[in-house]
């Protein structure tokens, strides 16, 4: 399998695009014609070849460009990557998980050679060839979480587990849907989810924490989450809200198709072997509405989901300003035909 890495941007001129194959493999998040919170967690088992579920850590055509965007974010705001002191071991655990998994799944892109603690890592797409001593931070160009985070698509949270709870004690977070690692670091599972409406009352987080704290090693899980983003912008952080907030005013019936993007997070959960921490990669996929409606099933379903969304979620997902306009635009792409179950195109 050969991946042609795109040269594209996620800011300013927004040259990001999905190839036709990229559109078809997009992880559409709605398995039925409606949406409400649920603990929609399933085993993160290898999925269909070519799908985003094929490998533990999906590498796609946006890899190199996403890593370049991450470097821009970190250059402006180094606090997007932080680890509390006790998370050093978990950071090494995570580096090992990513390197071994990617080297196995993408041998043409990544190579890992180990001789005891002496490791040799080659990342061909990014032109990296480093030798280091596993567990010794001074032998890397930067701390382990930052090192591997700069080479792995998606945000990465390391969750310490204690007191039957999970604690957001480290992370690399530059492609987030409006939450701040710098503010939330050190919080427990219920605290960092505190601003989410409805879900607490529904018991979603109580059930989720029971599941997550009992995830065993070697049996990762996954779920999909979603929101909408104007322009293919990865960095929709609260820190930079004054930069991306005004984008919302540019949404008109004429620009929806090009500017509005379905933003899907493929969230996975992995137990780490030495630290017993959980790593929680949050991988962001973007699909502009013009491309989304080329898949008839998705076009129909997207309309029905957005039309019937509870008002609290319309507000929480930040679409109050243009929700009626979206429903009208999407309605024109819904012929009323029934849709098949599941998320994949017909």
């Amino acid at each position: 399998m050969t991946i042609t890495f795109r040269t594209e941007t996620f800011r300013d001129d927004f040259t990001f695009r999905n190839s036709p194959a990229g559109i078809r493999r997009f992880p559409f998040p709605f398995h039925e014609d409606g949406y409400m919170y649920s603990v929609n967690i399933e085993p993160h088992r290898p999925g269909a070849p070519g799908s985003v579920f094929e490998h533990g850590f999906d590498v796609d055509e946006h890899y190199v460009a996403e890593m370049a965007d991450r470097a821009l974010v970190l250059a402006e705001d180094p606090l997007r990557c932080q680890a509390l002191p006790h998370m050093d071991l978990a950071s090494w655990d995570y580096l090992e998980l990513v390197m071994t998994t990617k080297a196995r799944d993408y041998p043409e892109l990544f190579t890992l050679e180990t001789d005891g603690d002496r490791w040799h890592w080659t990342n061909r797409p990014l032109g990296i060839d480093d030798r280091f001593t596993f567990g010794v931070t001074s032998t890397l160009p930067c701390p382990p979480l930052e090192y591997i985070g700069r080479q792995t698509q998606g945000d990465h949270c390391l969750l310490d587990q204690r007191d039957n709870n999970l604690w957001m004690d480290a992370g690399m977070v530059t492609t987030q849907a409006d939450w701040s690692l710098d503010f939330d670091i050190g919080m427990n599972f219920f605290e960092w989810h505190a601003p989410v409406p409805l879900a607490h009352e529904m018991g979603v987080f109580q059930r989720a924490i029971k599941f997550l704290t009992s995830i065993p090693q070697g049996q990762p899980s996954r779920r999909l989450n979603w929101t909408l983003t104007v322009n293919p912008r990865l960095d929709t952080s609260p820190e930079n809200y004054p930069k991306w907030g005004p984008d919302k005013l540019t949404v008109t019936p004429d620009t929806i198709g090009e500017k509005m993007h379905l933003r899907v997070e493929l969230q996975t959960f992995w137990r780490l072997p030495r630290s017993n921490a959980l790593v929680f990669p949050i991988r962001c996929y973007l699909l502009r509405f013009d491309d989304l409606v080329t898949i008839p099933k998705w076009a129909r379903r997207m309309h029905r989901v957005i039309r019937d969304l509870p008002p609290e979620l319309v507000t929480y997902k930040g679409m109050s300003r243009y929700h009626p306009m979206l429903v009208e635009w999407l309605a024109a792409h819904d012929d009323g035909a029934p849709t098949s179950p599941g998320i994949f195109p017909d």
Binding site: S180, F183, D184, I185, G186, M187, A194, P195, P238, Y241, P242, G245, P246, K248, L249, R321
Partner: peptide, 27 residues
């Protein structure tokens, strides 16, 4: 100088509530 909405979201590590621009979309 931004106009901040003071959320109830609170960080014990920072001993502070979070302030987020209230009119970022339309200043």
């Amino acid at each position: 100088g931004l106009s901040l909405f003071v959320r109830d979201h609170y960080s014990r590590r920072l001993a502070a509530f979070q302030g987020v621009c209230i009119n970022a979309e339309d200043q």
